[in-house]
């Protein structure tokens, strides 16, 4: 049994955590205001996750594996 190429939700969570950490750090440095940025961009996590799911589906089909 082979492992999947990647886990879309895992990648999304990882990217989200990285983004949150960077944003928090920038906020502490006084470069950005955290709350307005978060409120504006947090729905992008759904976009990223959805894109990764589509990519995962395409990879599975091209490699002949069942989704």
């Amino acid at each position: 049994m082979s492992r999947p190429a990647f886990s879309p939700e895992g990648v999304t969570l990882g990217v989200g955590l990285v983004a949150l950490g960077v944003l928090w750090t920038l906020s502490n440095l006084g470069r950005v205001e955290m709350l307005p940025v978060l409120r504006t961009w947090w729905p992008l996590s759904f976009v990223v996750w959805g894109a990764l799911e589509l990519a995962d589906l395409a990879i599975r089909r091209s490699s002949g594996r069942q989704p």
């Binding site: 969570l13 709350l35 307005p36 978060l38 409120r39 947090w42 729905p43 996590s45 759904f46 996750w49």
Partner: peptide, 13 residues
């Protein structure tokens, strides 16, 4: 998890 995060952000806003 994502929905809870978004709700928290909106509430804080």
């Amino acid at each position: 998890l994502l929905l809870a995060f978004g709700a928290s952000v909106e509430t804080a806003w």
